[in-house]
Design a binder for these strands. Structure first.
Length: 278
DNA sequence: ATAGTCACCTGAGCGC
DNA sequence: TGCGCTCAGGTGACTA
């Protein structure tokens, strides 16, 4: 489930509760996540220095290195009293000083937990990632440049983590709607002006979702145990066959790269070609 | 190099 | 109530 806003909501929720605390125990109940979970023997006894985020990875920085946690499709992290009863799919506990446990739950086990000694950015998973969508270097000129010669659908381009990180299926659909761009347009034919709009839309949709604590669909519960409230603001995702909130037309759906894609054929046709003047 | 498909896994929802 | 099918927020690996 978690897209970037959910991961950021998790970071803001759990970070202050465990940062600065001493790791007293680490319990791996199920090591078969996307990759086998292997924690170094000397992690226990170290202090957690900070919790940060790169793309959809949460980085738990200890003295000797970092835990790199990905929530996959169904993962979640909660900080709980250390004696809290286990639930199904509670795969990992990090027990900290102060009677609190950081508990990782993930029914589908698409998530992952790695340890990287030293700088977490040296890990191979983080090596080829594109810029953060909220960073200034991610702008229309950058996207236009990365799209040059590309025939993939523009939706696939913005979901490519080598181009820009953190744009998952929900927000890709939503951003393209806000920008008025048809998801299926070949990336190389989208104009610079349209990419300017798209960057604005991506920033807006992600920022708004972070403000509202993410989108709750099925599994996501933020670290306070509350649902996110962004779902109420969705314009197209999950609304195939329903009326467009802008024009009233019926939203259409198709599959693009195995992912559900929803758009308004009337509102999303501008910038669907490069004008002759280009 | 690029574009498209497959795989990983569990649970929810639906039609019968 | 149960069975079988489809779908789901991600993303690396693999194939042409």
């Amino acid at each position: 489930m978690p897209e970037l806003p959910e991961v950021e909501t998790t970071r803001r929720g759990v970070g202050p509760l465990v940062s600065g605390h001493l790791l007293e125990d680490a319990i791996v109940r199920e090591s078969r996540l996307r990759w086998p979970v292997v924690l170094p023997g000397d992690l226990v006894g170290q202090r957690l220095e900070s919790v940060s985020r790169r793309a959809k990875y949460l980085l738990f920085r200890f003295q000797s290195g970092s835990l790199i946690v990905h929530l996959g499709m169904s993962g979640s992290l909660r900080v709980l009293p250390a004696d809290t009863a286990l639930l199904p799919h509670d795969h990992l506990d990090l027990v900290f000083s102060g009677d609190r446990v950081l508990r990782y739950n993930d029914p589908r086990r698409f998530g992952s937990v790695h340890f990287q000694a030293g700088d977490p950015m040296d890990h191979w998973l983080l090596g080829a990632l594109g810029p953060e969508p909220l960073d200034p270097e991610f702008d229309g000129a950058y996207l236009k440049r990365r799209a040059r010669g590309r025939r993939v659908a523009v939706k696939s381009l913005i979901m490519d983590s080598k181009v820009v990180v953190g744009v998952g299926n929900i927000y890709a659909n939503e951003a393209l709607f806000l920008a008025g761009i048809r998801p299926t347009v070949p990336a190389g034919r989208v104009t610079r002006a349209a990419y300017d709009n798209l960057v604005r839309a991506i920033r807006e949709v992600l920022s708004d979702a972070i403000e509202l604590g993410g989108t709750t669909l099925r599994d996501f519960v933020n670290p306070d145990g509350d649902p996110g409230y962004f779902k109420q603001s969705l314009n197209v995702y999950g609304r195939e066959g329903l009326p467009c909130r802008a024009c009233g037309g019926t939203l259409r759906g198709l599959r693009l790269g195995q992912r559900a894609t929803t758009f308004c054929a009337k509102c999303q046709k501008a910038q669907s070609f490069t004008p002759p003047s280009w």
